[in-house]
């Protein structure tokens, strides 16, 4: 587990938010929605991987 994960998620969040704002201002609501969705899926995959890593650490440490 590394600090890089936090920076990555924050970067994705900021980029997607800015893209969303720009696309909404230029009148492309559908593309803005799709951008938000794609960013969310990527971030959720990262979070799920991190949670799985934590669970395996706890399992191996406490003999669950």
């Amino acid at each position: 587990m590394d600090v890089d994960f936090i920076f990555k998620i924050a970067a994705i969040g900021i980029i997607v938010t800015v893209l969303n704002l720009v696309l909404v201002r230029s009148g492309r609501e559908e593309q803005a929605l799709l951008t938000t969705l794609a960013g969310l899926v990527v971030v959720l995959l990262m979070v799920v991987n991190a949670v799985a890593e934590l669970f395996s650490t706890v399992k191996s440490l406490f003999g669950l």
Partner: peptide, 22 residues
């Protein structure tokens, strides 16, 4: 990130706590 997109804010909270717990 809380103002504009709260879902990323929650993801960051979860990953930060995982980082420290690990």
């Amino acid at each position: 990130l809380r103002q504009k997109s709260p879902e990323y804010s929650y993801a960051i909270i979860i990953v930060t706590s995982i980082c420290m717990l690990t």
